[in-house]
Amino acid sequence: MKLAPGDPVLAMLQFDEMHVTQADEEMLHKELGFDQPMLVQYGRWVFGILRLDFGESYIKGKPVLDELMDRLPLTILLTFGGLVVMTMIALPLGLLAAKYPNKWPDHAGRIIALIGASIPSFWMGLLLIYTFAWKLSWLPTMGKGGVETLILPSLTLGFAMAAVYARMLRAGLIESLSQEYIRAARARGIAEWRIFLRHALRAALLPVLTVFGMSMGSLLAGSVVVETLFSWPGVGSMVVEAIFQRDYPVVQGYILMTGVFVVIVNLLVDIAYGWLDPRIRLGRSERE
């Protein structure tokens, strides 16, 4: 942000539409601490974070933490909608492709996965807007309203993720179905659907969960694009505005919040490993 062109003070003055002099600009620079070295400014921000003080927005004059908390529920709602769409697409595609390898369900899944992985999220969003909002007039395009306003952003966010996870799930299931314990379960007469869903699927979800935890940063980055495209009032669209306005505290607060969110998700993924694979719990108990 410091290397990017632009001056937060000028952005603040333009936002207020006030006639100011050079002396006013210099006074505001000093008031905000911009006359001090960059490391000193960063140190002050870090000490404020230790006191849970994220600073105030230069443009709006409101506490950054309050701004983030006001917008965060809508971003979580959009992320949840994207995950629901991803699960509804990836799970049946992966299951059918693994159940019928090299047959028409597998080929159809490959085509859908190729389309989802090839089309950028912003282009997918524009196609959905053109089709369902402009041509068919079925769904609204922008803003936050009822459930219908969540459909297009969720489809845009979830379709690209579904392509990756469907292929990963297929590969994991095919590998799991070739293991010795699956053949032993079949020899004991366990129902095929039970073997497929209870035993093979649980093992196949481990690499999917690993990639999911690693891709949370990409998911949040994708939500920024989607929120901007659909004018969704979440933290993503807020940080885009803050970047253009050189609102440093808002950008720094968003990046810190994103880092904490990614760490928490990866911790939950690690905990889920023990539930999906009992061997992990057994190995830990043996070491203890």
Rank of each mutant, 00 (worst) to 15 (best):
residue 170 R to N: 08
residue 111 I to P: 00
residue 38 M to Y: 14
residue 22 Q to K: 09
residue 119 I to C: 05
residue 220 L to E: 00
residue 228 T to S: 11
residue 140 P to G: 03
residue 159 F to C: 02
residue 187 A to E: 01
residue 245 Q to D: 08
residue 216 M to Y: 14
residue 282 L to P: 02
residue 221 A to N: 12
residue 240 V to G: 00
residue 9 V to C: 02
residue 267 L to R: 10
residue 219 L to F: 12
residue 83 L to A: 11
residue 116 G to H: 01
residue 121 S to L: 08
residue 99 K to M: 12
residue 200 A to P: 08
residue 170 R to Y: 04
residue 1 M to K: 03
residue 74 L to E: 13
residue 139 L to N: 08
residue 158 G to H: 03
residue 31 E to P: 09
residue 44 R to P: 04
residue 205 L to M: 15
residue 252 Q to E: 10
residue 80 F to G: 07
residue 36 Q to N: 13
residue 89 I to N: 00
residue 70 D to S: 13
residue 157 L to H: 03
residue 52 L to K: 05
residue 26 E to V: 06
residue 190 I to M: 14
residue 232 W to V: 07
residue 283 G to E: 12
residue 16 D to C: 09
residue 14 Q to V: 09
residue 182 I to R: 03
residue 180 E to N: 15
residue 4 A to V: 11
residue 167 R to G: 06
residue 166 A to R: 01
residue 97 A to M: 12
residue 88 M to K: 08
residue 67 E to K: 02
residue 86 M to Y: 08
residue 23 A to M: 11
residue 92 P to H: 04
residue 20 V to W: 05
residue 223 S to E: 07
residue 57 S to L: 06
residue 149 T to H: 15
residue 42 Y to R: 10
residue 211 V to Q: 13
residue 154 S to Q: 08
residue 286 E to V: 15
residue 132 F to A: 02
residue 154 S to W: 03
